[in-house]
Design a protein around this nucleic acid. Structure first.
Ligand SMILES: NC(=O)c1ccc[n+]([C@@H]2O[C@H](COP(=O)([O-])OP(=O)(O)OC[C@H]3O[C@@H](n4cnc5c(N)ncnc54)[C@H](O)[C@@H]3O)[C@@H](O)[C@H]2O)c1
Ligand SMILES: NC(=O)c1ccc[n+]([C@@H]2O[C@H](COP(=O)([O-])OP(=O)(O)OC[C@H]3O[C@@H](n4cnc5c(N)ncnc54)[C@H](O)[C@@H]3O)[C@@H](O)[C@H]2O)c1
Lengths: 204, 204
DNA sequence: ATTAGGTTGAGAAAAATTTCACAATAAAGT
DNA sequence: ACTTTATTGTGAAATTTTTCTCAACCTAAT
């Protein structure tokens, strides 16, 4: 089983490999893939090595082989359904994004507390909170993206967890209190922007 | 100077502290702040200690003191102007987000290659790419958020860098080739969602 | 005043992650 | 066939990050 850090790299490799394949390449060196993904060549090799993926001593790695190994690791034989909670600006952006489909993820529904959002035109159906349980069950959803305002985040998370959700991608800038069996991945865009500013030497 | 990892924690502390202050607290223990931000108490203390921030041997840390120390570290005496390149769904969400203002960041303008976007109603003025140089200069912008499609990302980044941008928050799922003096912070939501799925035990 | 209790601060240890270094070896060239 | 060359695969070393541990010490209670 990959570590949380390693998984990020593996998924980046997959993206990079898909791009390289589309460009017509069949083979790739650890050095090349490293450059494509911002990882050192040694680490690329270590990562593959850790999953028993072999290259050719002088010919690098076979892209198709790498990709199918990665698909195996990430179990991409079936599509994973996802829901979005909070159909504001961010929720809308995520629900409209076409890129997820290439990665066997499917945003199947959105939820919002605001009745005005239910009538709006989105790419996906948007339901009131009452329907959460049935939709999650019907689509066999186990992961949700949380895009509600900070103050509503904990309540919305509790709601989701009550309906059996196992993982939450939390875009709200607050740490959710969740039971051990629920995994939360926090993405805080404001922190990322501030951090960039600090380190890009604008401030000091 | 903080490490990149450490900065993330420090900024989280700041958010947590602002919340705790709003709740009426004046003092905080490393343990409390740790719980609020998902960091161990020891690490909270180490972080503060590394910046010469002192607590009281038994009374914890003074929130106002912590906040002003953090403001000093992050130089929040003036507002930082930011631009968004690519006013699609994600660019729109970011440009409309009000939370940045509380953190002395100001999204001042957007850019888009698509003329149709220029007339649209946003919270900020949206310009064609030709105006990039003058806007960046006029607002003294040194950091940009990049929300263009993958295929356009490198070109847009080159454009920004040509106009003197020092830092890029890159939301496109591709590694940008940039000169050493430009810092890029990549946020790949797709990877974050896939990673969550993998580790939340949905797949194995 | 004295004591008890609880938290900080920091050195040491541990754990995690990354880089180094190079032998093994397959492919390509001669 | 032989040599050269480039790349993998992997232990060892280095570095970074986190946790452990506990003395120091402040605060509050008695
Ligand atoms: N937009 C950004 O650029 C940005 C940047 C950083 C962080 N964030 C965070 O992302 C989250 C979403 O941001 P946004 O800009 O989309 O906000 P938004 O206000 O546009 O959308 C929030 C949506 O959540 C809905 N909502 C409120 N309470 C709810 C509940 N209990 N259950 C279900 N839905 C509920 C609202 O009706 C609204 O539609 C916020 O927590 C914000 O802090 C956003
Ligand atoms: N929306 C999401 O949930 C999501 C998730 C993961 C990654 N991303 C990434 O974020 C980026 C933006 O996503 P989006 O959903 O907002 O896409 P979008 O298609 O809605 O918006 C892209 C915008 O960029 C503009 N553009 C194209 N080329 C440009 C150029 N050279 N200069 C300036 N503007 C240009 C387009 O006109 C459009 O308005 C993409 O790279 C996408 O892969 C988005």
């Amino acid at each position: 089983m990959a570590t949380f850090t390693q998984t990020k790299r593996l998924l980046r490799y997959r993206m990079g490999l898909m791009r390289l394949k589309k460009m017509g390449l069949e083979r790739v060196f650890s050095y090349t893939l490293g450059k494509e993904t911002g990882v050192s060549a040694e680490l690329v090799r270590k990562d593959f090595s850790a999953f028993g993926i072999k290259g050719h001593r002088r010919g690098g790695y076979d892209i198709d082989n790498l990709l199918s190994s990665l698909e195996r690791i990430f179990g991409k034989d079936r599509v994973q359904n996802v829901v979005v909670v909070g159909m504001g600006n961010m929720g809308k952006a995520i629900s409209m994004y076409q890129g997820f489909q290439d990665h066997n993820m499917n945003v199947v529904a959105g939820f919002d507390i605001d009745p005005a959002k239910l009538n709006k035109k989105f790419h996906i159906p948007v339901y009131p909170l009452e329907n959460m349980g049935e939709v999650i069950e019907a689509f066999n959803v186990s992961v949700a993206v949380l895009t509600v305002p900070e103050v509503a985040a904990q309540e919305a998370a509790d709601n989701l967890i009550g309906q059996g959700i196992q993982g939450i991608l939390n875009l709200a800038p607050v740490l959710l209190k969740t039971p051990d069996h629920v995994l939360v991945n926090n993405v805080n865009l404001m922190v990322e922007l501030e951090r960039l500013m600090y380190h890009s030497g604008v401030l000091k």
